[in-house]
Design a protein around this nucleic acid. Structure first.
Lengths: 90, 90
DNA sequence: GTTTTGTGTTGCATACATACAGTATAAAGG
DNA sequence: CCTTTATACTGTATGTATGCAACACAAAAC
């Protein structure tokens, strides 16, 4: 990270909050979800509370655990953070 | 990462390849793109060649540099990697 | 009340992404 | 040729995500 900007901090906080909300809607504890999908519950705790900036592979594994495509989770984030993008190629 | 699985390695390699392709379609060098968006070109090199597992904030910054929503980049990845997900909530 | 069980959190060692500076290579200019 | 310029890549110090074990605390069992 260049140097922890406000935006950056907000991003990971919002991401964590969303993840927590999704998990809770499944009525699973951090421990249970972590156990079932071979994650670390301590890690999950820090991610949900926006303390850390997870790596791509971790994002992927979390989305699998939640049963939601990562693209969908990110899309919610984009909406919430009010980012505007060009819809160009692809 | 639990312990670098094949799947994991494939994920970051494919992501890097996609990023490189997008950048090249903009006809920009790693250096130029990095300069314009305050990224590190060395880092970008390692990401494009699939050597490293970038963090969420870095993914975000790269997608901004490419002018493509991160959700869209991830969606391509999901398709390419043939992941199937339930379309449940949200 | 004291143990047991379930929850999220935290201390810490290790692995690794990041940022900066430097290298390698080739193409173009002179 | 040699130098300049542009490309991607790499050495390395520092910061930090990760995984594991332990903690704090509440609620339930007994």
């Amino acid at each position: 990270m260049q140097h922890k900007t406000e935006k950056t901090l907000h991003l990971i906080k919002q991401f964590g909050a969303n993840i927590r909300q999704k998990r809770e809607s499944l009525n699973k504890s951090q421990r249970l979800l972590a156990f079932e999908y071979d994650l670390d519950s301590g890690n999950l705790s820090r991610i949900e509370s926006g303390q850390i900036d997870p790596k791509l592979t971790m994002l992927w594994r979390i989305s699998e655990a939640l049963g939601i495509p990562l693209s969908q989770i990110i899309k919610s984030l984009e909406t919430e953070l009010g980012e505007k993008f060009h819809i160009i190629d692809q």
